[in-house]
C-alpha cells in the first residue's frame, strides 16, 4: 500500500491517468476492430517524428528558462534549411544533410539572440517565448512570400508570388530516415529503425552534454542560480547556451518530422508546434524547471500514443471524431496543471 502511494507520488496523477487511458485504449482496440500492431507502428513512427522536438525542451528547462514556447523559432530555422536545400537542388541524403547544415547557422543566430532577450526578462520567459514564437511565425509568413526562391517545386505555379503552403518532399528526402534498415513484420507492423536510431543519436548527444563540465553547470543554474553564481559560473552565458541548444534541436527536429510526414508546412504551420512538445515532456514527468531524457521518451510515447489511439479507437467505438478535442484537452490541460504547480520561489 505504502509503495503504491510512493509510486503515485513519484509518477504524479496526470501521468498515471494518461498511462491508464492509453492502456485501456490498447485493450479495447481489438474489440472495436482496430489492429494493435498497426497502432503500435503508428505510435512508434509518431514518437520518432516528434521525439527530437521534445528533446529540445530539456536544455531550457534545465537552466531554469522554463518551457520553450518559443520552439517555432527553431522550426523556422529548420524550414529555412529545408527550403534552401531544395532551392539548391539537393536531393536524397545530400538534401537532408544539406538541410541540416544550412539550418544550423540560422538556428545558432536565432537561438543566440533569443537567449540574449530571455536573459533580460528573467521571470517572464514563458510568456515572452510564446509571443516571440507567434510573431516570428507571422513575420516569416511575409518572408515566405517575399524571399527570392525560384525552384518550381516550391513556388506557386500560376503566376503567384512566393512559396506554397505545403511542399512535398517526394523526390527529395521523403522517408530517408524511416526507410533506413526498416524492419517489417507482416503487412501491418513496421519499425522505422533509421528514425529511431537518429533519435537515439540525438538523445545520446544530449545525455553526453549533460555529463560535461558545461552541462553540469547548466543543471546547477536551473537548480539554484545563486549557488551557481557563487561557484563562479556565468549564469547568463549558460542560459544562452541552453536556448541555442533548444533552438538547434527544434530545427533538426522539424526536419526529421518532415521527412516522415512527407511535406514541408510553411506559413502558419509552425504556429502551434510548441504546445504538443511542451505537453509531451510534462506528461513524461518533467516540471517547469526539471527535465531529463527519460521524461522525453516516456512523455512522447504516452502523448503520441494517445493521439494515435483516440481517433482510431474512439471513432470506431462511437462513430465520432473526438481526436482533436482529446488532443487539446490532454495537452493544454497538462500545461495548465504544470504552470499551477508551486515551484521554487523565483528570485
Amino acid at each position: 500500500m505504502n509503495s503504491i502511494r510512493r509510486f503515485i507520488e513519484k509518477a504524479g496523477w496526470p501521468r498515471i491517468i494518461i498511462a491508464m487511458l492509453l492502456l485501456s485504449l490498447f485493450i479495447v482496440a481489438p474489440s472495436v476492430g482496430v489492429r494493435v500492431d498497426q497502432s503500435i507502428t503508428d505510435t512508434i513512427v509518431r514518437f520518432g517524428m516528434n521525439g527530437i522536438l521534445v528533446l529540445g525542451m530539456v536544455p531550457m528547462v534545465q537552466t531554469g528558462c522554463g518551457l520553450n514556447f518559443g520552439l517555432p523559432l527553431g522550426i523556422i530555422a529548420g524550414l529555412l534549411g529545408a527550403t534552401i536545400s531544395i532551392e539548391l537542388g539537393l536531393t536524397g541524403l545530400a538534401g537532408f544533410a544539406g538541410a541540416m547544415v544550412l539550418a544550423a547557422p540560422f538556428a545558432l543566430l536565432f537561438g543566440w539572440s533569443y537567449g540574449k532577450l530571455l536573459n533580460r526578462v528573467k521571470g517572464d520567459e514563458m510568456m515572452i517565448a510564446t509571443y516571440v514564437g507567434f510573431s516570428s511565425v507571422s513575420f516569416m509568413c511575409m518572408m515566405w512570400m517575399l524571399l527570392p526562391y525560384h525552384s518550381s517545386k516550391m513556388i506557386w505555379g500560376y503566376g503567384g508570388a512566393g512559396l506554397r503552403t505545403t511542399i512535398s518532399l517526394e523526390g527529395f528526402w521523403l522517408h530517408i530516415l524511416d526507410n533506413f534498415l526498416t524492419v517489417r513484420i507482416g503487412s501491418n507492423f513496421m519499425f522505422p529503425t533509421g528514425m529511431i536510431l537518429f533519435f537515439a543519436f540525438m538523445a545520446l548527444i544530449m545525455w553526453a552534454f549533460f555529463h560535461t563540465k558545461t552541462g553540469t553547470a547548466m543543471t546547477a543554474v536551473g537548480s539554484n542560480p545563486d549557488y551557481a553564481r557563487a561557484a563562479g559560473i556565468n549564469v547568463d552565458k549558460m542560459r544562452t547556451i541552453s536556448v541555442i541548444m533548444s533552438t538547434v534541436y527544434g530545427a533538426i527536429g522539424i526536419l526529421v518530422f518532415q521527412q516522415s510526414f512527407g511535406f514541408i508546412q510553411l506559413y502558419n504551420g509552425p504556429f502551434f508546434m510548441a504546445l504538443p512538445a511542451v505537453a509531451a515532456i510534462l506528461i513524461g514527468g518533467a516540471s517547469v524547471n526539471k527535465a531529463n531524457i527519460t521524461n522525453v521518451v516516456i512523455g512522447t510515447i504516452l502523448f503520441q500514443g494517445i493521439l494515435t489511439m483516440t481517433p482510431s479507437v474512439i471513432n470506431s467505438a462511437i462513430q465520432s471524431d473526438l481526436s482533436e478535442v482529446v488532443r487539446i484537452i490532454v495537452s493544454d490541460g497538462m500545461i495548465v496543471y504544470a504552470l499551477t504547480r508551486v515551484t521554487r520561489k523565483s528570485r
Binding site: 510568456m127 504546445l275 478535442v325 488532443r327 484537452i329 493544454d332 504552470l339
Partner: peptide, 17 residues
Amino acid sequence: GREMVTSLILGYFINGV
C-alpha cells in the same frame, strides 16, 4: 507571477472543453 501565460493556455484548454 505567470498569470499571462497561464491565462493564455487556460484559454486553449477551455476551448477544448
